[in-house]
Design a protein around this nucleic acid. Structure first.
Length: 691
RNA sequence: GCCACCGUAGCUCAAUUGGCAGAGCACCUGAUUUGUAAUCUGGAGGUUACCGGUUCGAUUCCGGUCGGUGGCUCCA
C-alpha cells in the first residue's frame, strides 16, 4: 500500500508502487492530460517516476491558454526544449560536440563545441527552429533509462565525447550511484543525451519555442579552457505565452537606460573621450545633482563630514594599501614623473623593466585612484584621534577609475570612471553595529523615497574552511553578527552567503536587476580590519594607550553612474518632478499668448522650478506631443482664456488629457510642495482630486 | 581580455546577384497663428567608422584597426 498526499492535504491509497501519471489519472482525465511532471516530496520528477513509498505529491501541469505557467512547468518545458534544440543542431552540424544544456531564467541554453571553421550564426536560427518543429511534431516520448556508474562510464567513454565523459565523472563525484539518459523516442534508436532529468512526457508538450540568441562561453567557465558556442532559446506552454514574453522583452528594451539616455539627452559616451567614460549632459547632470543633494542632506544628518580629495595619489600610497600592484590589471597604468621617464628612455628601459621598477618603488609615479579609502585614511591619520572623536565619518562623492575589461562595459552600468557616494567610518569594534545600521537606514530612506522595492540584500560572510581572511576570529564574529542583525533590522528579505565576504571583512550588498534581466550590485557596506592595520591607524583610548580603529567602507548606492543608469530604467525615464531635468513646460497656444507664457515661465522660475517654454511655431498638438515624448512631469497650456483668468491649463505626464485650468499661484504652490516633499504626482492629486 | 554578431545623415532605418547612397524624424527657409500626441512648402546635411587588399567598378567581397551589442570571464 502506498499513501499519496496531495497539496490540499487529502490522501489517496494505491496498491504497491505508483507513478505521478497514475495519481493524476486517478484524480481526473483533465489533470492527466495536462500533467507534465510532478514534485514528489519536494523533488522535481518525471511523470513516470516510480513512487515506492508514501509521499507528498503535487502534479505539475501546463494547459494551453493559461496566461502564465508555473516555474516548474516552464523549467520542464525548457529543459526538454534544450534537448530538442541539441538534437536539431546535431542534425545540421553532425560534428558538433554537446556539452551542457540547462534551463535558465527566461529560457534555456545549450553549450557546444564546434570544430574549427564551423559556426552557428543567427541566420541559422530559422533552420534550427524548423528541425526542432519537426521533432516536436513527431510527439516522441522522453524515455529515461539508467545504468550503474561503472557500466555508464564505460558507455560514455566508448562514445568518446570528452565533455560528456567529464559530465558523467562529475555526476559520480557528486554522489550519483547511477547515470541516466533521456532518449527523445526509443533508446538505441532515437537521439539521446546523458541527463539527470526530469523532462516533459513527450516532445509534443513543448508548446512554443524560439531560438533567441547566440553567445560564447568557456568550458567550466575557465577562460583558459575550450571556447564553446552557447545557443540560447526559450520555450513556453503555448504560443500566446511566448508572444507575451517577446512583447515584454520588446518593452524592456524601450526602458533600456542607453535608449532613454539618448532620447532624453541625459548622457553620452564618446569614443573620442574613451570607452566606459560617461559624459553627463545638462539634463542628466540635473538628476545627478539633485540626487547628490538629497543623499548629502541625509549623510550630514547622520553625522558625516564632507571631504574632497584629488583624483590621483602617489604609487607608494597604493603600495601601502595593497592596491598596487596586486590589482594592477584593473587599474589604468601609472603616471610616471617626467624626468624619470626621460632617464629611462635614455637607458632604453623596456616595459618589463618599468613594471618591475614601479613595483619595487625604484621608479615613483602616480595612480588614478581606484578607490577613495587611502585618501580618506590619510585624512584620518592627519590628526591625533581620541576615542572621544570616534566614530570619524568622512563622506565624499569620490571619482575613481578602474580599467575594466572592454567586454564588460555596458552603458552607465559598468564603466571605467565613476563617482561613488563613498564614505569611510573609523570606529571601535563595539561601534560597528550601530554604524552598519545607520548605513542601512540611509539606504532604506532613499529607496523608499524613490519607490525602489525590487532589490536583494546579500550578506557576505567568511568561508569557515578558508584561512585567507585577515583579522581576529573574535572580531569577525562580532562584525558578522552586526551585519546579520543590521540586515534583519532593515526588514527586507536577505540572503547570507558564506564565502562571499571580502578577505578583510564581512559585507552587505544591495543588488538590483536591469531592464534586460541582468543583476547589478549597487551599494555595499564592508567592514575592514585590514587597512587600519596596513596604515597603522590609531586612536588613544580611555586607558591612555594606543588602539587600532576598525574601518567601515560604505557606498550605499554604489556609484552615481550605475545608480542613475538603474533609476532611468526604474522610472522608464519618467522621473518624479524633483529629479526631472525639466519639471514644467509652458506651451502657448499661439504666439498671441507668447507674452503671457513668458510671464508664467518667469513666475515658475522665480519659485525655483525648472520651467521650459516651447515658443516654436508649431501647433499645440505638436508641442504637447514633444513634451510628452520628453516625459516632462507637468505641462501647462496657456491661451487667451488663461491669460484673461490668470490661469494655466494642466497636463500631467502619463495622463493623456487636459486636467483643467487652475490659478497660476495655486499651480506654483502645488508643484513647489511636490518638489519639496520629493513626491511623485502629488501636485496632480492636490489640484485635481477627482481625476 | 575571449567568442559571436554589428557599424550607412544628428536619430531610427532602406539600398534587387558588386553598378551614380535613399526615406522618416530632427535641423535650417518661407507660409500659417493654431486650445491638448506630428500644419504645409522649400533646403541643407554622407570620404557608407578607419586603414589596406581584390576588382573596370566596393556600402556590398577579403584582411587589419577602432567602436558598439550579447554572452563568457572578471569586478578591491
Amino acid at each position: 500500500m502506498t499513501t499519496i498526499q496531495l497539496p490540499d492535504g487529502s490522501t489517496r491509497d494505491f496498491n504497491g508502487p505508483v507513478t505521478p501519471a497514475q495519481v493524476a489519472e486517478s484524480i481526473g482525465p483533465g489533470l492527466a492530460q495536462s500533467a507534465i511532471g510532478a514534485r514528489v516530496d519536494g523533488e522535481l520528477v518525471d511523470l513516470h517516476f516510480t513512487i515506492e513509498q508514501d509521499a507528498q505529491i503535487s502534479i505539475i501541469t501546463a494547459r494551453k491558454g493559461e496566461s502564465e505557467s508555473s516555474d516548474d512547468a516552464l523549467w520542464l518545458i525548457r529543459h526538454s526544449a534544450a534537448h530538442v534544440m541539441a538534437e536539431a543542431i546535431e542534425r545540421l552540424w553532425p560534428e558538433v560536440q554537446l556539452v551542457y544544456g540547462p534551463p535558465v531564467d527566461g529560457g534555456f541554453y545549450y553549450d557546444m563545441w564546434l570544430p574549427d571553421g564551423q559556426r552557428i550564426s543567427s541566420d541559422d536560427f530559422e533552420r534550427i527552429e524548423q528541425e526542432m518543429k519537426s521533432i516536436i511534431d513527431e510527439k516522441r516520448p522522453f524515455t529515461r533509462y539508467e545504468m550503474p556508474t561503472e557500466q555508464g562510464i564505460e558507455k560514455v567513454e566508448s562514445e568518446g565525447s570528452k565533455y560528456k565523459i567529464d559530465n558523467a565523472r562529475r555526476a559520480i563525484e557528486a554522489g550519483s550511484d547511477s547515470l541516466s539518459w533521456y532518449a527523445t523516442g526509443e533508446p538505441g534508436k532515437n537521439w539521446e543525451d546523458l541527463c539527470r532529468g526530469p523532462h516533459v512526457p513527450t516532445t509534443g508538450r513543448i508548446g512554443a519555442f524560439k531560438v533567441m540568441n547566440i553567445a560564447a562561453s568557456y568550458w567550466h567557465g575557465d577562460s583558459k579552457s575550450d571556447n564553446l558556442t552557447r545557443v540560447y532559446g526559450t520555450a513556453f506552454t503555448d504560443k500566446k505565452q511566448l508572444k507575451k514574453h517577446l512583447n515584454q522583452l520588446e518593452e524592456a528594451r524601450k526602458r533600456d537606460h542607453r535608449v532613454i539616455g539618448k532620447q532624453l539627452r541625459l548622457f553620452t559616451i564618446d569614443e573620442a573621450v574613451g570607452q566606459g567614460l560617461i559624459l553627463w549632459k545638462p539634463a542628466g547632470s540635473i538628476i545627478r545633482q539633485e540626487l547628490q543633494n538629497f543623499i548629502s542632506k541625509h549623510t550630514y544628518r547622520q553625522g558625516y563630514d564632507q571631504v574632497f580629495t584629488p583624483h590621483i595619489g602617489r604609487l607608494e600610497l597604493y603600495r601601502t594599501s595593497g592596491h598596487f600592484p596586486y590589482y594592477q590589471d584593473s587599474q589604468y597604468p601609472p603616471i610616471i614623473e617626467r624626468d624619470q621617464m626621460s632617464v629611462m628612455a635614455a637607458e632604453g628601459c623596456s616595459c618589463g623593466d618599468l613594471s618591475n621598477r614601479l613595483e619595487t618603488g625604484e621608479v615613483e609615479g602616480y595612480l588614478l585612484k581606484p578607490m577613495n579609502c587611502p585618501h580618506h585614511i590619510r585624512i584620518y591619520a592627519s590628526e591625533q584621534r581620541s576615542y572621544r572623536d570616534l566614530p570619524v565619518r568622512l563622506a565624499e562623492f569620490g571619482t575613481v577609475y578602474r580599467h575594466e575589461q572592454s567586454g564588460e562595459l555596458s552603458g552607465m552600468l559598468r564603466v571605467r570612471g565613476f563617482t561613488q557616494d563613498d564614505g569611510h567610518l573609523f570606529c571601535t569594534p563595539d561601534q560597528i553595529k550601530d554604524e552598519i545600521q545607520g548605513c542601512l537606514e540611509l539606504v532604506k530612506i532613499i529607496f523608499e523615497t524613490l519607490g525602489i522595492d525590487q532589490y536583494r540584500v546579500r550578506v557576505g560572510l567568511r568561508d569557515p574552511q578558508s584561512d585567507k581572511y585577515v583579522g581576529e576570529a573574535s572580531n569577525w564574529e562580532l562584525a558578522e553578527a552586526a551585519c546579520v542583525e543590521a540586515a534583519e533590522l532593515l526588514g527586507v528579505p536577505f540572503e547570507s552567503e558564506e564565502g562571499e565576504a571580502a578577505f578583510y571583512g564581512p559585507k552587505i550588498d544591495f543588488v538590483v536587476r536591469d531592464a534586460i534581466g541582468r543583476d547589478w550590485q549597487l551599494g555595499t557596506v564592508q567592514v575592514d580590519y585590514n587597512l587600519p592595520e596596513r596604515f597603522k591607524l590609531t586612536y588613544i583610548g580611555a586607558d591612555n594607550t594606543s588602539h587600532r580603529p576598525v574601518m567601515i567602507h560604505r557606498a550605499p548606492f554604489g556609484s552615481m553612474e550605475r545608480f542613475i543608469g538603474f533609476l532611468i530604467e526604474h522610472y522608464a525615464g519618467a522621473f518624479p518632478a524633483w529629479l526631472s531635468p525639466e519639471q514644467i513646460r509652458v506651451l502657448p497656444v499661439s504666439n498671441k499668448t507668447a507674452e503671457y507664457a513668458k510671464k508664467v515661465q518667469a513666475e515658475l522660475r522665480a519659485n525655483d522650478l525648472r520651467a521650459g517654454l516651447d515658443s516654436s511655431d508649431e501647433r499645440l498638438n505638436a508641442k504637447v506631443r514633444s513634451a510628452a515624448e520628453l516625459k516632462i512631469p507637468y505641462v501647462v497650456v496657456v491661451g487667451p482664456r488663461d491669460e484673461e483668468n490668470q490661469t494655466v491649463s494642466v497636463r500631467a505626464h502619463g495622463i493623456e488629457k487636459d486636467l483643467g485650468a487652475v490659478a497660476l499661484e495655486d499651480f506654483v504652490q502645488a508643484i513647489s510642495s511636490e518638489v519639496a516633499d520629493r513626491g511623485h504626482g502629488t501636485a496632480k492629486t492636490t489640484l485635481f482630486p477627482d481625476s
